[in-house]
């Protein structure tokens, strides 16, 4: 039975509307939260985990959400705590950076948050300017479960060479993004 989108027998009155509202808000902040977690953790797997934990906390605390306030900012605040919790669970040797450093990274400026969409749009444009081979390399590296090592092995290239190639592509993309957002970047 296709009952997608409709209330079910066990739903309380108003519950489906609440879920619909939550889902809509959640959909608008997923990328923002993931990018924020990546900013602090630098690992897609860790950021993924933080995103999921954050989503659960957001649902549990959704009653505290003030309609009209910025949902993404609230979500990032919760994500920050989830990042710290994840770091605490890791052995000290696996924590690459100091707490002070993470604190420094955790302070996005309003301007940098506003720039996210501009940089994302520029990235789409810039990806289109890559050669087919470079795009293929990026796609292989960033596909789910992709890693630099697995890409190197599948292409028969050295890990070092693959890392160099990816670094070169990232630098080219950064330069392209910079050119395309230059008017909007802070001086």
């Amino acid at each position: 039975m296709d009952n997608v989108g409709g209330p079910t027998e066990s739903s309380k009155p108003g519950e489906s509307a609440k879920i619909e509202q939550f889902a809509q808000l959640l959909g608008t902040c997923q990328r923002q939260v993931f990018l924020y977690a990546m900013r602090l953790l630098h690992s897609a797997a860790d950021a993924e985990e933080v995103l999921q934990e954050t989503n659960l906390v957001l649902w549990r605390k959704f009653g505290q959400y003030q309609p009209g306030s910025e949902f993404g900012r609230w979500a990032c605040g919760i994500a920050h705590y989830e990042v710290l919790k994840l770091r605490e669970k890791k052995p000290r040797a696996e924590r690459l950076f100091s707490d002070q450093f993470i604190d420094m990274l955790a302070t996005p400026t309003q301007r940098s948050t506003e720039m996210l969409d501009a940089r994302r749009d520029a990235l789409q444009h810039c990806l289109g300017k890559l050669s087919a081979a470079d795009r293929q390399l990026v796609a292989a590296r960033y596909q789910p479960q992709g890693s630099t090592r697995s890409v190197a092995e599948s292409l028969g290239r050295s890990v070092q060479g693959t890392r160099k190639a990816l670094h070169r592509i990232r630098l080219a993309l950064m330069a392209c993004i910079q050119r395309n957002t230059a008017r909007e970047e802070p001086a």
Partner: peptide, 9 residues
């Protein structure tokens, strides 16, 4: 890092 994150996403 943001570029890396966007591509991961």
């Amino acid at each position: 890092v943001q570029l890396h994150a966007e591509l991961s996403w």
